[in-house]
Amino acid sequence: MGAYIIRKLGEALAVCVAVSVIAFVLVQSTGDLAVAMGGLDASAEETARLREVYGLDQSLFQQYLGWAWRVLQGDLGTSYFSQEDVLTLIMESLPVTAVLAVSSLTLGLLISIPAGVLCAIKPGSRFDRVCLALSVLGQAMPSYWVGLLLILLFGVTLQVLPISGTQSAASFVMPAMTLAWFVFPVFLRLSRAGMIDVLSSDYIRTARAKGLPRRTVLVKHALRNAILPVVSVATVQFGFLLGGSIVVESVFSLNGIGLLAWSAIQRADYPVVQAVVLVVAIIFVLLNVVADLLNAALDPRLMSEQ
């Protein structure tokens, strides 16, 4: 088990390093950074001084090392636009996105897992067909469109929910519904397929041969094995939601990390973009490690892996 964790962490570290190189190159490719930092009206001396201060006259490799060292100390740079510390900006907006991701994921799982299990018990039934049709529909609807339709319905027509901002918990209802609708097809199909697979397995037949009641067979023997893949995908999906909530945050004007990144991109504020890419990627990698560990904890076959 210890070796397993170390191995997974080692792999995660390697991916983080690679991601940081990409984030670094991303900003390097935008042109002369000294000009970008100083602004177009900066004098030649000012630009030269910036170049020296930030080590922009060094080789790329040295620049990367210097940048990486600063990142490790928590210095993600300064916004071109507002001159604020990028880390502070991220820390302000990350909780909003995290709340959104957690609530939508919870909502999505609470609906899709029971639905998927019910579908799997009677594949081909009316309930199964309706759920599958909904999941096909869910996959086809752009999430921002769903968000706009919700705004039209609840915000404009019925006027029961606020259409933007983060003032109250009610502000999160529509964004969370939008993203829950987005993750519903994934988990429905996963839990349905997992359950169908498990229900046809030999050990379920063994459990039935013992004369156990149907409910015991389903809950004790089937559900746990069927849910295993859902756990790891849900963890990973959480990471996707962190980086992929841009459109929903922009539709509902939620001051999350997605909106921060989007406005930074529009203003060519690359230190912020770079930092968001890096932070989201590292969170994603860490979540992957968590998913692996969760899987190992739930599946004794992985636990005792040599």
């Binding site: 063994t206 041969a209 094995n225």
Partner: peptide, 24 residues
């Protein structure tokens, strides 16, 4: 049959590798 199954009548299967629940 279900009343007797697993009580008076028991069964064993071909594949010992997959016939037991891996997580119990």
């Amino acid at each position: 049959i279900e009343r007797l199954r697993g009580d008076r009548i028991a069964m064993i299967f071909q594949e010992p590798m997959t016939a037991l629940n891996p997580t119990l």
